[in-house]
């Protein structure tokens, strides 16, 4: 199975391990990526909150390149990129006047809609049978809080993905690894997202509430599918400890890393050693392991 790939900027920087683990897991499951050549940033939060034409033009440049390359569907592992690519396509398809404006900016006629898949949709497409068939290790010591955040599920009218308030597709994937998903309350709450530099206080507050709720519901690890969420929930734990001294480290993994462990890869191979909060499956403290 060959799929179009839009890595997005984070995958080449702060979320390198997400890119590394994704490529390894996908290869192991018999699929491969055809990266969009010379892609640009989707504009992320900063473009759409300040200039809607800029935001739509940056996203649609990538869609136009994908079409030119003959790609029918694209995987966008970053939830924010996924959301921007899906939203921009929806906007220009429903508003011909906007489509015209974007075409003028890009000097290009825009064609058909291209299916953009988020990380969970990718693994649903690859299929649970493939994952189960390739599983080497049963991650039975893990109790997982599946964190969706905002941009995978909202707005439901545009993403058409899972349930916006009570999603469960990530839990279904996690179960395939032998780990046990927990029921908890904060799976679609916001981590503070792009406020990470300008309003770190807000990010620390919101992210801590998410981590606390996961702990209170018996989880010993959190799993995410967004680089921005990961940096707020993992990297910011250092600052969190200074702001809230009672805070205890809590590991946060990308879904691809969890799948990689189940497929027999080790932490280093998957880039888990790049996280701020350490995670080693074989060294899970006994009191944190599931009974």
């Amino acid at each position: 199975m060959k799929l179009g790939y839009f890595p997005g900027c984070s995958q080449t920087g702060t979320a390198k391990e997400y890119d590394i683990s994704l490529r390894k897991v996908v290869e192991k499951l018999g699929a491969s990526f055809d990266e969009i050549q010379d892609w640009t940033c989707c504009g992320a939060t900063s473009a759409h909150v300040t200039n809607h034409l800029l935001a739509n033009s940056l996203s649609m440049r990538n869609i136009a390149l994908a079409e030119q390359q003959g790609l029918d569907d694209i995987v966008a592992p970053c939830a924010a990129c996924y959301n921007r690519l899906v939203t921009s396509q929806h906007e220009i398809q429903t508003h011909p006047e906007l489509k015209q404006e974007v075409e003028l900016v890009l000097d290009k006629k825009l064609g058909k809609e291209i299916k953009v898949m988020n990380l969970i949709e990718l693994f649903m497409k690859i299929g649970s049978e493939k994952i189960t068939a390739n599983r080497i290790k049963e991650l039975k010591n893990l109790k997982v809080a599946c964190y969706y955040g905002c941009l995978l599920v909202r707005p439901a009218a545009i993403t058409h993905f899972d349930d916006a308030e009570q999603p469960s597709s990530m839990e279904s994937l996690v179960e395939l690894t032998g780990a046990k998903p927990v029921d908890w309350n904060y799976k679609v709450e916001c981590c503070g997202a792009a406020h990470t530099l300008a309003r770190r206080d807000i990010v620390l507050d919101l992210s801590k509430k998410i981590l606390d709720d996961a702990k209170e519901h018996g989880a010993n690890v959190m799993v995410v599918a967004c680089p921005m969420c990961h940096s707020n929930l993992d990297m910011r734990q250092r600052a969190m400890k200074r702001e809230y001294p009672e805070h205890k480290d809590f590991p946060v993994l990308y879904l691809t890393e969890l799948l990689g462990l189940a497929l027999g890869m080790d932490e280093k191979e998957l880039g888990i050693n790049k996280h701020t909060v350490e995670f080693k499956y074989n060294e899970l403290p006994a009191d944190k392991a599931a009974v």
């Binding site: 905002c150 941009l151 909202r154 439901a156 308030e165 679609v188 916001c190 997202a193 792009a194 807000i202």
Partner: peptide
């Protein structure tokens, strides 16, 4: 923060 909880 653009979380879109309101829109949903």
């Amino acid at each position: 923060a653009g979380c879109m909880t309101c829109s949903t």
